[in-house]
Simulated assay, not measured.
Amino acid sequence: MAGRNRQRVFQERKEPLQLYGYRMNAFGIRFVSRMLRPYLESPTDRNHALSVTVKVAIGLRFLATGKMQLCNGDDFGVSQPTVSRVVTQFINALTMPQIVARFIKFPRSDAEVRLNQIGFHAIAGFPGIVGVIDGTHIRIVAPSQNEADFVNRKQFHSINVQMVFDHRCKIID
């Protein structure tokens, strides 16, 4: 019977908003889904394409829980390779310059700078502060190229990230 096409079997998919572990409520998931729709929407429904909401839920759940892709796949009724592709699509969509600019913006005008200075002065009495800076190491899986470049002083693989916050604890850089 070589050459005969077998009927494809698709796992039953669960309603993503009925699952838990997103560190975000259903309203937040819908907000992110609307925002990322242009970047995540499948052009057709061929092969039972995942909805944008399911893709967002898979991406959020992976980032929020750190669960293995296989476990997330089981939870959503999709394969591990599908979870891998969706997480990559989700992160790429989240890091699009148009999306980042909606939430992270360094003060550019004199009025914005002055507002931050007033806010920090009200909190701690420090004059002239526009933002506070901190950094941390985010643990990563050892890369296959330039592996030694990613070993930090505590001898684990990481990337060094830095953030700047305003007086309201919003990321500005």
Results as ranks from 00 to 15, higher is better:
77 G>Y: 03
58 I>G: 11
132 V>K: 00
21 G>M: 08
158 S>Q: 09
153 R>V: 00
60 L>I: 04
70 L>T: 10
170 K>Q: 14
31 F>G: 04
105 K>D: 05
126 F>S: 12
98 Q>S: 14
124 A>F: 03
10 F>P: 06
171 I>L: 14
163 M>K: 03
148 A>V: 08
106 F>E: 03
97 P>T: 09
119 G>H: 02
136 T>Y: 05
21 G>Q: 09
78 V>N: 04
159 I>F: 03
16 P>M: 07
139 R>L: 02
57 A>N: 06
72 N>Y: 00
67 K>R: 08
31 F>N: 13
28 G>S: 11
133 I>A: 03
124 A>V: 09
102 R>P: 03
96 M>L: 04
120 F>D: 08
38 P>L: 06
89 Q>V: 00
146 N>T: 04
58 I>D: 10
84 S>F: 01
131 G>W: 01
88 T>E: 14
87 V>Y: 08
152 N>G: 10
110 D>P: 07
37 R>Y: 08
99 I>M: 07
169 C>T: 09
125 G>D: 11
131 G>S: 11
95 T>F: 05
171 I>N: 04
28 G>C: 11
114 R>M: 09
158 S>V: 06
88 T>Y: 07
133 I>D: 01
160 N>S: 08
112 E>Y: 03
73 G>I: 04
18 Q>F: 05
169 C>W: 07
15 E>S: 12
55 K>V: 02
125 G>C: 09
143 P>K: 07
93 A>L: 04
54 V>K: 14
131 G>H: 04
32 V>Y: 02
94 L>F: 08
7 Q>K: 15
140 I>F: 01
129 I>S: 05
161 V>K: 01
23 R>S: 13
76 F>N: 11
59 G>V: 06
119 G>K: 00
55 K>D: 05
4 R>S: 12
15 E>L: 06
70 L>N: 10
65 T>H: 05
163 M>F: 13
8 R>C: 03
38 P>I: 06
49 A>P: 14
96 M>G: 02
66 G>V: 09
160 N>M: 08
20 Y>P: 02
1 M>E: 13
74 D>H: 13
69 Q>L: 03
132 V>S: 15
127 P>R: 11
121 H>G: 01
57 A>H: 07
154 K>H: 15
122 A>M: 10
10 F>E: 14
34 R>K: 13
8 R>K: 15
141 V>S: 12
13 R>E: 15
39 Y>V: 00
99 I>W: 01
3 G>P: 02
137 H>N: 13
31 F>C: 12
85 R>I: 01
79 S>C: 01
55 K>E: 11
2 A>R: 12
